[in-house]
Design a protein around this nucleic acid. Structure first.
Lengths: 368, 368
DNA sequence: CATCTTCGTGCAAACGAATGCGCTTTTGGT
DNA sequence: ACCAAAAGCGCATTCGTTTGCACGAAGATG
């Protein structure tokens, strides 16, 4: 009798404790798979199988379990899940080391948006790199890989002799790169534009417009994309029997001060260019700005074409003639590729070329 | 006898399988805490304590263990760790729903860079939202919170009656917002600029320059930042005894088509504005573009001032007079705040105001 | 009416690390 | 020399899931 009384009191107390607890910190009320199981009168394993929508569970049970989950507000603990299945349903996104102001380029949020879109559809999460300099970045990649933080990675850039890329192929870790890998091209899956032909076409357009003195301004030469665009430019010149002058090539980060020197040099040549192919809309912005300081007008005195078709390239004056590389699409496809690869481990290396199109606007002038 | 034979063969096979496996996929050779323990001749628990740099372990042992870790290339499994300690050393970054092209704003990569920087220092990882529309975003936040995916969150925007923010305070989940919360201001920690005074000062500058007809162009009115900037503008007008005209106020997403209408309306007024306060550099870009179409020159015919001091605001023509809100710093501080809060659970709600400064450039003209 | 499938579940052992507690040593004080 | 305290370390449990295997109950087959 007494024991019953005790028992009752204890239960009562317990109930109130739980109740109070519940009131205080709702977020701490962790409801686990066991709670759900209890409420649905099944074993935890059954609940787990319901979550996975296993065919081995009857519809009746599934419904009952799902109801219990709803009622309890159950959300699976990812960490436990990931530990058990040794994966993380997350993909790592590696930006170039943020030391470079390249990050200010709207290219990144846009490509991130694309990646995020397909990641979301497939219930993957996004992990983005935070590393400041190259070394930190590398360290972080290692942590992601070895620490089981992500199942795969997307590299948002491609440079020559990139230790991170080397590391990833070495470790046989699934990844895709946006841009063309510098080496082992056939063994790495990547999504890219046909930058070579885009550049060629762009340059041809300038040639068609009567330009014979065309400069090329690109970013650091260790970016593969820069080199591809340069190659396209050279080919176009060659095919038109125009000679290629080293003086017309500028490689620069294009932050203000250094950019100034570049433009200064270009326009103090005995024969300054009447047109330029610039590897990135943001650079064009910088160039146009410099140009103005030197009293050179675009497109009157010099025509400008560039790449990426950023949102703002249409807003500035003059609106840029630029190649639309479909940034968003690059993101979408790279994520799709990666996830495909994660699902079927032995998926072969792929290459996906996103079509480009040239947006003709008014930064170029026909001087025929 | 036969069973022994069998057993041997099986073991042998198994061994070879493991061996092959080892050769094939290096990354699968997961080295755990136990392996390290074995190699260092200690118990796994000791290794764990070495990792945590516990004072209970002698320096000798620590060194030995660390050596073993290096040699084996040990990296802790985050999932296991997180499961055990019930945290994740990750912070969630919530961007506005990516449906809006707002994402193209370089504000985001820049603030991300700031967050990433301090996250990296403190060994936190970054989880970014991928949600497309508001609903998806909400769902994702729930998954992050309930699923133990992140320890805390940073909201990159603040709007009125945001269900996500409500949810987070309701769940008592640690978060900080960049921008001023619409309600419960005193209970939410946030980092912001003094947008009111910045706007006031900016408007005063235009008034000092002799402008009497000043328009305000802002984004959607449900962004708190927009409202703050609008308030500053109104105050300045009032103090200068200028009357506030509804005709001079435009709220718009400022994508091309809609933006056109806005500018059109503004400049077909009997008394068009001679100056404007614009809530964002990107918008200014759009406005300037429209202006040109209408044959209105900036700064000759109309002065423009705006906010954010994006990298590009200095590059465009005319270079924008804009308030530098220190985007990077906003990111850094918000992350610091959050991490502080995570460390000391009962940290009070804070408010951090990042100082602003006005960059005077040539988009404004003195018409006295 | 046995035997054999299928079907629906539950049991228990992983997954890799953290940690309370207890067991040895050492150290220091008297 | 003795005892207490402290230092250094290991055992075993825990975190919340997944999953191979086994088990029991139907239904099908002979």
């Amino acid at each position: 009798m007494e024991s019953i009384l005790n028992s009752v009191t204890t239960d009562d107390l317990l109930y109130r404790m739980i109740f109070d607890y519940y009131i205080e910190d709702e977020e701490c009320m962790v409801v686990t798979i066991k709670d759900v199981a209890k409420r649905a009168n099944v074993a935890p394993s059954t609940v787990s199988r319901v979550i996975a929508d296993s065919s081995r569970i009857s519809l009746d049970t599934k419904k009952r379990v799902r109801k219990a989950m709803k009622e309890l507000g159950y959300y699976p603990n990812v960490n436990a899940r990931n530990l058990a299945v040794r994966s993380s349903q997350a993909i790592g996104v590696i930006m170039p080391s943020s030391a470079e102001t390249a990050l200010q380029n709207p290219f990144f949020p846009e490509v991130l948006r694309g990646i995020g879109s397909t990641a979301h559809e497939t219930e993957y999460s996004l992990y983005v790199s935070t590393g400041g300099n190259d070394e930190q970045l590398f360290e972080e990649v290692k942590r992601m890989v070895y620490g089981n933080r992500v199942d795969g990675m997307i590299l948002l850039y491609s440079r020559v002799a990139d230790p991170i890329m080397d590391f990833l192929v070495e470790a046989n870790f699934p990844f895709v790169v946006i841009g063309k890998p510098y080496e082992q091209e056939s063994r790495i899956t990547y999504v890219d534009n046909d930058n070579y032909h885009a550049s060629l076409e762009l340059t041809n357009h300038l040639i068609d417009y009567g330009h014979r003195h065309i400069a090329f301004i690109g970013g650091t030469t260790d970016l593969v994309v820069t080199m591809d665009r340069l190659r396209g430019y050279r080919s176009a010149l060659k095919k038109a029997n125009l000679d290629f002058k080293d003086d017309y090539i500028v490689h620069d980060e294009f932050l203000r001060s250094s950019g100034r020197k570049a433009v200064e040099r270009l326009f103090s040549l005995k024969k300054p260019p009447t047109a330029m192919v610039i590897a990135d809309d943001m650079m064009s912005l910088g160039v146009i700005n410099m140009l103005e300081e030197f009293g050179v007008d675009c497109p009157e005195d010099v025509s400008i074409t560039s790449f990426n078709n950023l949102y703002l390239s249409e807003l500035i004056r003059p609106a840029l003639t630029t190649v639309d590389i479909q940034i968003y699409m690059l993101g979408v496809q790279s994520a799709k590729c990666l996830i495909e690869k994660l699902k079927h481990k032995e998926e072969p290396a792929k290459r996906i070329i996103i079509p480009y199109s040239i947006k003709f606007r008014n930064s170029t002038k026909n001087i025929n």
